[in-house]
């Protein structure tokens, strides 16, 4: 009788521990885990996506290897953040002068429905000539964002249209594809330009 009680209690304890472990796994590593926000992007060489640049060329993460890269997300129907970021970047590139010539600068749309290759071509034409515009099918954009640990979300606007919430930081990668750092939205030039120089210098070290 007593032995049976021990068995029952023992089973209950084992069951409870197993349940706790399962709940823990579910919430930390399993399907219940929070979205990977605030994480560092993976190395470009570990990413896998196929997009088209504003001149109609097929591009992917391998396009960016070999030169340092500055990349960011946005959409051309964005009235405030995106033109500001593009203007900021144009200003940083002007400051860097010749140093910026050996750099990839890529604007990746999170709104491929409206941002076709032609739309991207017209839009990037208004900013620094080094800036390339990349677009592609929705599922490929999702893969890019996943690799960058960036997020975006379509939000209906009162006007009947929609707008996009999206990660507004600028990502910097070394020529090797390794993530170096990011520049937060609207970070002052005095901080942004030295960060870009760091990504450029990392390339030099790798080359020697």
């Amino acid at each position: 009788m007593r032995r049976r009680a021990i068995l029952v209690y023992g089973a209950a304890v084992v069951g409870a521990v197993a349940l706790m472990l399962f709940v823990g796994w579910w919430r930390v590593d399993g399907p219940g885990a929070p979205a990977p926000v605030g994480q560092r992007p993976v190395t470009l060489t570990e990413m896998d996506f196929r997009l088209t640049d504003h001149e109609g060329n097929a591009v992917g993460p391998e396009t960016l290897i070999g030169r340092p890269t500055m990349a960011f997300f946005g959409f051309t129907y964005c009235p405030d953040v995106c033109p500001t970021t593009l203007s900021d970047i144009s200003g940083w590139l002007d400051d860097l002068g010749d140093e910026a010539d050996e750099m990839n600068v890529v604007f990746i749309t999170v709104d491929p429905e409206r941002d076709t290759v032609e739309t991207m071509a017209e839009y990037v034409g208004y900013f620094h000539p080094a800036i390339r515009g990349w677009t592609g099918p929705e599922e490929q954009i999702a893969r890019v964002a996943d690799g960058f640990r960036a997020t975006y979300e379509r939000v209906p606007a009162e006007s009947g249209d929609y707008t996009m919430n999206h990660t507004a930081s600028v990502f910097l990668f070394a020529a090797s594809g390794r993530f170096v750092t990011m520049i937060d939205y609207h970070e002052p030039k005095e901080f942004a330009v030295p960060k870009i120089r760091r990504a450029l210098e990392e390339e030099m070290e790798g080359a020697t």
Binding site: D80, T151, E158, N165, A168, H186
Partner: peptide
């Protein structure tokens, strides 16, 4: 037709959003 004052906010994760 629809001019409104909006505000852009950027959260700790660097995600920007816009609302009236």
């Amino acid at each position: 037709m629809m001019p409104e004052i909006h505000e852009t906010k950027t959260n700790a994760e660097g995600v920007s959003s816009m609302s009236p």
